[in-house]
Nucleic acid binder design. Structure first.
Lengths: 263, 263
DNA sequence: TGTTATGATTTTACTTGTAAAGTCATAATA
DNA sequence: TATTATGACTTTACAAGTAAAATCATAACA
């Protein structure tokens, strides 16, 4: 029923209009992303595609064609391909040899692997941050926690998700290790879409805020090892909530190209 | 003195022969690497360049030209560039915009960052491996330790370095997490050249072998948390030895193109 | 002598072209 | 009907070409 390919008639020397699988909405989402600050084309393509995957605009299983992306982003195929290669080594897309790239499916096994990595790196970041953060920076963490409480009172789960991300990212920043920063960034960000996907099915994250407070307190007390342990178990609990929610979902979203073809 | 560029005479319409900075030895090292198993050209280029950097054939600071690599490896520039982009995101080379790629310099600050990452990931790998390894696999670890002792008796530090790598890599394998595997692989392998570089300046690694035995014992006892702690402090000690040795070295190797031009 | 200007050269950054391999709809066949 | 064969079509994988930018040696000049 969702086969949108036109049957090729013999006189189809007319240029086909529906060579794309992507809806107009997704196309505008991709092309309207503000990446003007980036001068390099591959970096622009990288940010655009990653952003679209992160926000489930490019759903798991969706094929990503270099020709199509190039067309949408207004560049040639080469910089697009370069960005896809990078996204592949980071785990955002998967390369099927001679078939093309698809958005990495959202399966429990994969998420489990990411969590095992992020738990460890998040933990060490917290440990390092404890020694390296200034009072001012710790106050900034406190500010983020307050914002989280506000978002929770308003039941704004989307805002809360962003603030939770900011909290953890800021701790990683404080570790002052660019390499760690890069790896955590690309890995933990891949968890975002799983959280987005299960956002309504998880318990209200009041406990997360409590734990954030406890983590900050131990950072203030200057106990690096304790910070590490707490961050790790904090992530562990979050992991279980996500995986539980994912299991109670419709089987798995694969090749769900949300197409709106013209009338 | 080491300026090997020929002064361009007015009648230099002759094709220049020394357009390369790389010695014949390095060229043959690169082209003779056994990568025939790999069908994809970018993967071949990736392995070749990475291997050459790892073994200090391409020294820190060396510029890596895509045209030159393409020529040496017998392919066009496109797959070479793709491999360089990947090596850049992993930290092996550094991209100077509009200037080209150079082999990442071997500076203490960078090594420190890598160690912070690897310590954490190695630790979690050990923790996971403890639950997931079979008796047979643990015996394989024991075998590797025995080989290390033999290498040490023969004072074969190069063999020992390889065996030490194998030991740690095997533990990561046992964690059964491909993503973790990939990140540790690319990161910890970047430490290899630092170890190679300081190989004669460090104390004989008898203590490392003792610690390996202790780690294996705790894995056999099935105490994941203890394995993590021990692996982490094991890496920490190794880190300090390397960084100390590096500090007592000639300033820092940058642009040391070990050229042997024709007579 | 020291400093600035200049132009040839090199190298990336990006575009475009092409062959091979895989896919898929349709037709032929048992 | 079920299965296999066929061929048009799509898409990557790789090659090759070009323009802009940075570099560096040399020359002009104060």
């Amino acid at each position: 029923m969702n086969n949108q390919k036109t049957p090729q008639t013999i006189d189809s020397n007319v240029k086909r209009l529906d060579q794309s699988d992507l809806s107009l909405a997704v196309r505008s989402f991709l092309s309207n992303l503000d990446v003007n600050g980036e001068s390099r084309l591959p970096q622009r393509a990288y940010l655009a595609v990653r952003h679209a995957i992160r926000h489930l605009q490019l759903p798991p299983g969706q094929t990503v064609l270099e020709r199509e992306m190039a067309e949408i982003l207004g560049m040639s195929r080469t910089p697009v391909r370069e960005s896809l290669v990078r996204l592949e080594t980071e785990g955002w897309v998967r390369l099927m040899p001679r078939r093309g790239f698809i958005v990495a499916p959202l399966v429990a096994d994969d998420l489990q692997q990411i969590y095992e990595v992020v738990e460890a790196l998040d933990g060490v970041a917290g440990r390092l941050a404890t020694g390296r953060a200034t009072h001012q920076e710790l106050n900034q963490l406190e500010h983020l926690i307050e914002e989280q409480e506000k978002a929770l009172e308003l039941n704004d789960l989307l805002a809360w998700t962003e603030l939770d991300d900011q909290f953890h990212n800021y701790i990683v920043d404080l570790a002052q290790n660019p390499r760690l920063r890069g790896i955590v960034d690309s890995q933990s960000d891949q968890l975002y879409r799983a959280r987005l996907y299960t956002i309504g099915l998880r318990p209200k994250p009041t406990r997360s805020v409590t734990e954030h407070k406890a983590i900050l307190a131990v950072m203030r007390a200057g106990e690096p090892e304790a910070v590490r342990t707490m961050l790790q178990s904090h992530r562990y609990r979050a992991r279980n909530e996500i995986l539980d929610a994912l299991q109670s979902m419709p089987p798995l979203p694969e090749e769900t190209g949300n197409n709106e073809t013209f009338p």
